[in-house]
Simulated assay, not measured.
Amino acid sequence: MKFIDSEFVKKMCEITNELYKHGWDERNGGNVSLRLTQEEVNRFNDLNDPIRNIPIKFDASALAGQYFLVTGTGRYFKNVHNYPERDTGLVRITDKGNSVDLLWGFSDGGQPTSEFPAHLMTHISRQKIDSDQRIVMHCHPTNLVALSFTHKLDEASVSRLLWKMQAESLVVFPEGMGIIPYMTPGTNEIGQATADKMNEFRIVMWPHHGIFACGDSMDETYGLIETVEKACMIYTAIQSQGGNILQSITDDDLRDLAKSFGVTPNPRFLSTETVNS
Rank of each mutant, 00 (worst) to 15 (best):
P181C: 07
K230F: 09
N79L: 05
L103H: 14
Q192S: 12
G110Y: 00
V204Y: 09
S61I: 00
I238C: 12
G89Y: 01
K10G: 08
G29T: 11
G65F: 06
F44S: 03
H81P: 12
S240I: 05
A237W: 14
G223C: 04
I179D: 13
A213Q: 07
Q66F: 04
C214D: 14
A258E: 05
S157Y: 12
F201T: 06
S125Y: 07
F212V: 11
S125W: 05
G223N: 12
K21R: 15
S33H: 03
Q66W: 11
M121T: 00
V136K: 01
E40A: 08
K164T: 15
S217H: 09
M198C: 01
K259C: 01
G176T: 09
Y182S: 13
Q241F: 11
E18H: 13
D253M: 11
I249D: 02
M183K: 08
Y182I: 11
R52I: 05
G243A: 03
A231Q: 07
R75H: 01
F173D: 11
P181F: 03
L102D: 10
E14R: 10
Q111I: 01
N53F: 13
V32N: 02
M198T: 08
R92D: 05
A258W: 03
L246E: 10
T122W: 12
T194F: 00
T184G: 07
C139E: 01
E39I: 06
S61N: 10
Y182D: 13
H81C: 07
S33R: 01
L147F: 10
V91T: 06
I179M: 13
T274G: 07
G178D: 05
D154A: 08
W163R: 08
I203K: 00
F212R: 00
L102T: 15
S107H: 04
S157A: 10
G191M: 06
E18R: 15
P265M: 04
H81K: 12
K259W: 04
P267S: 15
R52T: 06
I129Q: 12
L102F: 03
I54L: 10
M205C: 05
V80L: 09
M121A: 15
H151W: 13
I234K: 07
I124R: 14
A146M: 02
Y83D: 02
P117I: 04
I238N: 06
K21S: 13
G215Y: 10
N17E: 11
V100Q: 08
M233H: 10
I190G: 07
D25N: 13
N244C: 12
M121L: 15
T194P: 01
A195M: 02
W206F: 13
L153A: 02
N17H: 11
C232Y: 05
D25A: 14
L270I: 07
Q241M: 15
N143V: 00
E220V: 08
